[in-house]
Amino acid sequence: MAGRSRHRTLVRVLALAAASAALALTSQTASAAETGKPVVVVLGDSLSAEYGLPRDTGWVALLRRRLADKRIDYNVANASISGDTTSGGRARLPELITRLKPAIVIVELGANDALRGVPLATTEDNLRAIIEKAQQNHAKVVLVGMYVPQNYGPAYTERFHQIYSSLAKALDVRLVPFLLAGIENKPEMFQADQMHPTQQAQPVLLGNVWPTLAPLLQDRPNR
């Protein structure tokens, strides 16, 4: 019960963070469409939105830096909002597609659905709709898998994780099996809430995403 109480408290905190983050999101992503380069949109939650981290130290910022270092001709628009759910991402995606016309969409959503008790069928339906909307607009998709805390029970935990692999197979999209792979059993890699990775963990998160994303970048010639 203590774990569930902590989760409810975190949901309230993230809801407040989401309200302020949403106000800044348009200006943060607007510049990505201005140069004419293809755009990678990261549609995520607090794990991608630098929750509790210094500005420009999260894995998405590290991805932007890696592309620049490798002279890979893409912009990265971080459209992640702390506390966001699959329903929120589904609602926000059409405007992002219209404005940014992404070549690639990285979908990192679902953990907050579990924290809020959203039915698994709803989470799956929302993720399917997000993927299909991106594909209909000629964007490639990377789906980022997640697990929920073990106190949800092994059956629920496995069913939740299977949503990602099932959708990836059914819709023929690339899958990152688990964003937090390699740090999940290392408390020192998490902030005080033991749910959000520290700054030191961010290169590991990028390392989990990069092998799945990199092949999709090869169709675009380097500068």
Rank of each mutant, 00 (worst) to 15 (best):
Q202R: 03
V142H: 02
R174S: 01
Y51L: 02
G207D: 11
D69P: 00
L167W: 08
Q162G: 02
A61G: 14
T29N: 12
A111V: 10
R92Q: 09
A155E: 15
Y164S: 03
N137S: 14
A214R: 15
P102L: 00
L67I: 05
D172P: 05
G58Y: 10
A134H: 04
S5P: 02
L127K: 04
D45N: 08
F190W: 08
R159T: 04
D73W: 06
E34S: 11
A24R: 15
L16V: 06
R64F: 10
K133E: 12
S82R: 02
E108V: 00
D219Y: 03
A114T: 02
L10A: 10
Q199K: 11
T122V: 12
H7D: 14
D73P: 11
L25Y: 06
L23V: 15
R65S: 14
D172F: 13
A103L: 10
L10C: 02
V11P: 06
T26I: 12
P119E: 09
L216A: 04
R223K: 11
T35I: 08
V105K: 02
P94M: 07
I104R: 02
E50G: 02
D45P: 05
S48I: 00
N126E: 06
I130S: 01
F178C: 05
Q202S: 05
D193K: 05
G88P: 05
R6P: 01
I183C: 10
A129G: 03
Y152T: 02
K186H: 10
R4M: 14
L23W: 15
M189C: 06
Q136E: 15
I106T: 07
N151E: 07
V118P: 00
R174N: 08
E124L: 04
E108T: 06
L175A: 01
L47S: 05
G89P: 08
K101S: 11
E124Y: 05
Q28H: 15
Q136I: 11
T29D: 00
V42R: 03
L205K: 07
Y74W: 14
F160N: 03
A15M: 13
K37D: 12
D45I: 01
N222K: 13
S166R: 14
Q199S: 13
M146I: 08
R65E: 15
I183H: 05
